[in-house]
Design a protein around this nucleic acid. Structure first.
Lengths: 243, 243
DNA sequence: CGACAGGTTGACCGTTATCAAAGATCGTGG
DNA sequence: CCACGATCTTTGATAACGGTCAACCTGTCG
């Protein structure tokens, strides 16, 4: 069940879930990287077409086939974006954390969601619908540049992911993932997995069983040490990248 | 060897490969979808920061690790975009045809190319460097929206690709690919492969041998008929999507 | 007409998914 | 705050999907 606070001030032909004005909610917009360079009055204008919604842990925010309302920005919490393959198995695409945004695909054309969004903890998001966003982007072109930059990065990420999934072995994918978590600069150090191993398996396009086994192998090879369920000490970052 | 025609009029601190002004070259910009809604004088402004380059069949336009010059728009010809995985194997990402653009990744941040671009036939492109493009996008926000729409679509495509490569079997990937070539509406009809089977294998993240075998299997199953090297008759589009 | 890239077919085997079952961890509600 | 159940994790045994190597075929282009 969702709980919505409408901040819309001008006319609207949409169904409201409830209305409520709170000054503190400006944080919803002002904390977001893509808006951070804006002036106060610009922020207020954006805020005026913004709608805050809250979701409880485990709630689905949208699912494949639903029409997209437009952009949403994560205010607090964590959203898991995943896709169902034709075979029914799911692949984890990414997590959205506060400041990130989603819902982009159907933003610029009337399409349907192709993936799923689910709150993994209690989460609140700000929504901006397609029409309002277009107006804002045309008025403040610098926001478009920010979004473009973000898109470019995601595209890069998705293509890298696609290539690795298609070509590399599970062990390699896992090793590269760990190496990237550590950061390319460091040769050793502890990393904290940002997700469960089950989710990691889904993210890397494999199974929990394989993750478990491959981690064990990497440990035997002396490249890592499993400190804790979520903590891995990397002993040889260079070696990892060459697996 | 590349041949460049500079259309830059203002100052420039770049190395020139040669200069040449031709009025007909306006087609370079005016034929491009993302610019098509613009006025004549706007087109001329964009043209003024544009640089046309020609590449011969087989020439590499850029490679991983090179700094990106900025956006380029394909004027004529065909560019193959591919990526090298860490293991050295290559994956075909997409082809750019006239009207398409590329070089987006490093556009909004100073990064390096992560993939390769290669002219598969004699090709001419228009380049716009990062700084000039920013100016244009800030001045004509509607162009940003067009690019955003294109990005969103590519992102969607890349994520679909990643998911399939990670999760589906080769036979399924191939079948889905064929079904999409046909178009989701039709149940049967002939499709022409837009690339060699070797490239198709690379695109789908498998090997030519597997493509060959799986096509044979699909044929035995009565779902398709291989008319010619590049032509496949699809007998049961619905069946294909359920493989 | 010959050479070369692309395509096919066969045999082999390594990697990894799958199924099953036991053990660890987490979150929730009492 | 503890105890319970649900979910995640690990380990083992098995099978199959698909990559690899090798040989041969085919079409194309100089």
């Amino acid at each position: 069940m969702k709980q919505a606070e409408e901040h819309r001030i001008a006319m609207t032909d949409e169904k409201h879930h409830g209305e409520h004005h709170s000054p503190s909610v400006a944080g919803c917009v002002s904390q977001v990287p893509i808006f951070r360079h804006l002036e106060q009055d610009q922020l207020l204008e954006i805020l005026s077409v913004t709608r805050t919604q809250k979701y409880k842990r485990g709630e689905t925010i949208y699912r494949t086939g639903e029409p997209s309302d437009g952009l949403y920005i994560v205010n607090g919490g964590r959203i898991k974006i995943y896709r169902l393959a034709e075979s029914g198995k799911e692949q984890l695409l990414r997590f959205l954390e506060p400041g990130d945004f989603g819902g982009e695909l159907a933003l610029f054309q009337e399409t349907l969601h192709e993936n799923y969004g689910e709150a993994t903890v209690n989460t609140s998001i700000c929504r901006v619908n397609r029409q309002d966003l277009r107006v804002i982007l045309l008025r403040y072109p610098s926001i478009s540049l920010k979004i473009l930059a973000e898109f470019a990065q995601r595209l890069e990420q998705a293509e890298k992911q696609a290539t690795r999934a298609a070509i590399e072995r599970v062990e390699t994918r896992l090793a590269l993932y760990l190496a990237e978590l550590l950061g390319s600069l460091n040769l050793r150090g502890e990393v904290v997995l940002p997700m469960s191993k089950k989710d990691l398996a889904s993210y890397l396009g494999t199974t929990p069983e394989s993750i478990s086994r491959k981690l064990a192998e990497l440990e035997e090879a002396g490249l890592i040490r499993q400190v804790d369920n979520r903590i891995i000490e990397i002993l040889d970052g260079k070696g990892l990248q060459e697996v």
